[in-house]
Amino acid sequence: MSGWFANVDWSEIGQACLDTLAMLGGSLLLTLALGLPLGVLLFLTSPGQVWQNRVVSGGLALAVNLLRSVPFIILLIVMIPLTVLLAGTSLGVAGAIPPLVVGAAPFFARLVETALREVDRNTIEAVQAMGATTRDLVFRALLPEALPGILAGATVTAIALVSFTAMAGAVGAGGLGDLAIRFGYQRFQTDVMLVTVALLLVLVQLLQMAGDRLVRHFTRR
């Protein structure tokens, strides 16, 4: 056994796992917290909705598309000054979180917007016709109705963040991706590569399963 995984330093793997989980947890939380209101705003300002506003909706869409079209590895580098400002460092777990959030929040916002679009037009009108405020409409109708879609979007976002954290590893963020690149790739230690990829796979599987369960729990069909 030890002959097969000769290069694997298990304590280093453990630390990398913790780093990856910390990056994922921190960035996912902030991504959801920023992306959800942004997605609701994208939806409400779109044509035909209560706050329809061509300028706001066009501006938001442009900003979202811009952030989504910048390759993440480039975003990591261009953001360094801002990252230092926000996190105090551009290295380690803390330094990875700002670019992860900026990369993933627009993506999640689009998924939220798409989920809200699936809410039946008659349902929205029915709630408005009751004399609901926009706040009532969002919190009592739109978000509860779109919850399964939003949770599915959060799952996809979490998994995208896993691959983003691996990329962040390349510029000094640490974690499993960092090990895979430094040892698995640059030093040809295939065993380290295998172990890190297997651990990332387990993480993705667990996220997908948890997400699917949540979606099922909140779907009433």
């Binding site: 109708a141 109705e145 909140f218």
Partner: peptide
Amino acid sequence: MIFQNFGLLGS
């Protein structure tokens, strides 16, 4: 008001 597609909240 009532609607063709009922407009109920499925959740």
